[in-house]
Design a protein around this nucleic acid. Structure first.
Length: 416
RNA sequence: GCGAAAGUAGCUCAGUUGGAUAGAGCGCCGGAUUGUGGUUCCGGAUGUCGUGAGUUCAAGUCUCAUCUUUCGCCCCA
């Protein structure tokens, strides 16, 4: 039997899980502060949900989906991203009755890719969506939430917010046509990849890393020239809002996003510290997606945060919070086992973290207490039991004193 | 999907032109210590050398295949 986890998947536990949970909980806590409610959607959906939601031309749909038929012959797919499922839920649960809807989610996503550091086949994202609010104020709110989260994780100085607009549907289509016209002149000079992009998704030529492409891109038409007045005004309001809140950003006119549903604001928070997988949180506005999925015309904006990448980042930068330290209960002798169990129970009922070694003499148990990074030991032997006390030892300083059992929780207050 | 590198103990790694029982540090277990940890000292176990074939008197070492990871591309969080 092959005991390795499947390619691109891994067991997450110990210190890695600590970092992982810190990221997830930080996004959740801040999302709640911003008025988002949590939703859990299924991990797999009818394949059509993602084809329509994410867009047929995206690489995710065309070659990265985990798709399978169930025993009834229907085609299902493990979700490759979060937005499509949330929008599907928004429509099928009739949430349009009470707008706007603000939702938070976190969980695993699946993409059939070649794994690298920070890039997995089972990846984890936490994200938010605001549905039914078309004002630039919500763009600013979502970006502000993202910025708060990253700062709370201690990453304010390690990420850069890149911002762009794709304009509304009309502007985006006009720009697309202009790009096709421009790059078609130079078709022979384009890289092989970009010739394919020219057919499938010309916008993506703009962030090609090919040197030859880069030269052509320099003189390519700029989005700004094709923005209609409403699109321009919308983007200006987003930038004004960010300025007012003091959120730093750079406008990157070449920033495009892979998923077909984006309109207007698109953004990425990137870091230089993770190699080729530098995008740690990204998103944008997707007015039109809900309609496309069969719901009423509804505006939408949101982001997805890469939990795996952010966990790697805070680990490498030493920003992971230390685990709370337990209190170790140490019985001395067989007769002390039950009394110390009772003491441990009382402390746990009072909210303390209490652990113990189950075997060995006192020296061994104290060693174990060190190993689990305990801050204090509650020692109980024949002497203590006879007097109705316990010995409380500070494991950092070595100081210890006897306290009556009834006062134990109060006496340990400073070790909480 | 394309190109490249790597895989030896729980972890980080050494292992010569192919040569006999495959090593170190850290960690782990036991003892010095049967009511006092961290430091120290002594002792012990680490292992399908990623997997499977092949070459050879002999393979951790060479060849091929395969799996996984890592780096770049592609793409994305």
């Amino acid at each position: 039997m092959n005991l390795q986890p499947a390619r691109g998947t891994r067991d997450i536990y110990g210190a890695e899980l600590t970092a992982f949970k810190q990221v997830e909980n930080t996004v959740r806590d801040f999302a709640k502060r911003y008025g988002f409610g949590e939703i859990q959607t299924p991990i797999f959906e009818a394949t059509e949900v993602f084809c329509r939601g994410v867009g047929e031309t995206s690489d995710i749909v065309s070659k990265e989906m985990y798709t399978f038929s169930d025993r009834g012959g229907e085609s299902f797919t493990l979700r490759p991203e979060g937005t499509a499922g949330v929008v599907r839920a928004f429509v099928s649960e009739g949430m349009a009755q009470n707008l706007p809807v603000k939702l938070f989610y976190a969980g695993p996503m699946f993409r059939y890719e070649r794994p690298q550091k920070g890039r997995y086949r089972q990846l984890h994202q936490a994200g938010v969506e605001i549905l039914g609010a078309a004002t630039p104020q919500t763009d600013v709110e979502v970006l502000c939430l993202a910025w708060d989260v990253l700062c709370a994780l201690g990453l304010g100085g390690n990420v850069r917010l890149e911002l762009n607009t794709l304009g509304d549907a009309e502007s985006r289509a006009a720009y697309r046509d202009a790009l096709v016209a421009y790059f078609s002149q130079y078709r022979e000079q384009l890289s092989e990849d970009s010739r394919v992009r020219l057919e499938k998704n010309p916008l993506r030529i703009l962030d090609s890393k090919d040197e030859g492409d880069k030269k052509l891109i320099e003189n390519a038409p700029e989005m700004t020239a094709y923005l209609n007045e409403p699109s321009k005004a919308f983007f200006d309001e987003v930038k004004t809002g960010l300025d007012a809140l003091g959120i730093p950003y750079v406008v990157n006119p070449r920033l495009v996003r892979g998923l077909d549903y984006y309109r207007h604001t698109v953004f990425e928070f990137v870091t230089e510290s993770l190699g080729a997988q530098g995008t740690v949180l990204a998103g944008g506005r997707y007015d039109g997606l809900v309609r496309q999925m069969g719901g009423p015309e509804t505006a939408g904006i949101g982001f997805g945060a890469g939990i795996d990448r952010l966990a790697l980042l805070i680990t490498e930068l030493g920003k992971v919070d230390p685990e709370p330290r337990p209190i170790a209960v140490v019985p001395a002798g067989e007769d002390a086992v039950l009394p110390s169990m009772k003491a441990a129970h009382v402390l746990r009922q009072n909210g303390f973290i209490v652990d113990e070694a189950y075997t060995g003499n006192m020296a061994k148990r104290l060693k174990k207490a060190n190993k689990i990074n305990a801050c204090a030991a509650v020692i109980m032997g024949g002497d203590e039991i006879a007097k109705g006390v316990a010995t409380v030892r500070n494991l950092d300083s070595g100081e210890q004193k006897e306290v009556p059992l009834t006062d134990l929780p109060a006496a340990l207050e400073s070790f909480r």
